[in-house]
Design a protein around this nucleic acid. Structure first.
Lengths: 109, 109
DNA sequence: TTAGATTTGTCAAAAAATGACAAGTCTTAT
DNA sequence: ATAAGACTTGTCATTTTTTGACAAATCTAA
């Protein structure tokens, strides 16, 4: 998937020939806001992922992966983060994972 | 730098032998909150980066890079994003950059 | 113990995200 | 041309999240 999450939703929606109003109703949200989501003006709320998965018969885990990569991609884009810096960010994530691991073993003692 | 941004601040602060109260004053914030920042309970507010750079005689751009890699690293950590998914996220960032580029040229027409 | 440094808890204020609705544009069928 | 439906845009109240501020606790060294 090399689109934004909003474009992805639009793709799913049009393939099923649903209108904004119809899909919005299924998702419990306003069609105007869904329009903004598809157009990248607003974010899709993570708590609706299970509903979205169900509506389109998608695997929730995979959908969530689409979602988090979109979120991260957006942040990478917004911060103008180069590949080089992204590597540093990944190392810092790794560092946090280790911090957490150490906390766990500490607790065990 | 393979520490969190909070730890980094603490490092800078102790190297200069400043107390939380002293540095907090220079940064225009509460020492209790600075403590939380150093301990990773709260985030450092981006708008204070220029002040922070000045206080410690750091290059603002480099400091900002430390900051955004920390922010991204935190998000990568929190979302349990694997390296593989991170690659996807980077591709999506690239996609957004192209979207934006096309918008610019469209405007020109 | 006491003083200073740091941490933790809490709450109000500020900021950001979301929901809701009205009014607009755009397209298509008649 | 216009009427209907689909979509977009603007705005504002509500909700949620983040931040600032202060009190009280703990910790540490003299």
């Amino acid at each position: 998937m090399k689109t934004t999450f909003g474009e992805y939703i639009r793709l799913l929606r049009t393939k099923k020939e649903l209108t904004l109003t119809q899909l919005a109703a299924k998702l419990n949200l306003d069609s105007a806001n869904l329009s903004k989501i598809e157009n990248g003006i607003r974010d899709f709320d993570e708590k609706r992922l299970p509903k979205l998965a169900k509506i389109f018969g998608l695997n929730l885990k995979e959908l969530r992966n689409e979602y988090i990569t979109d979120q991260l991609g957006k942040k990478i884009y917004e911060t103008n983060c180069t590949k080089q810096l992204l590597k540093v960010a990944e190392e810092k994530a790794e560092y946090r994972r280790n911090l957490n691991k150490n906390l766990q073993t500490e607790k065990a003692v």
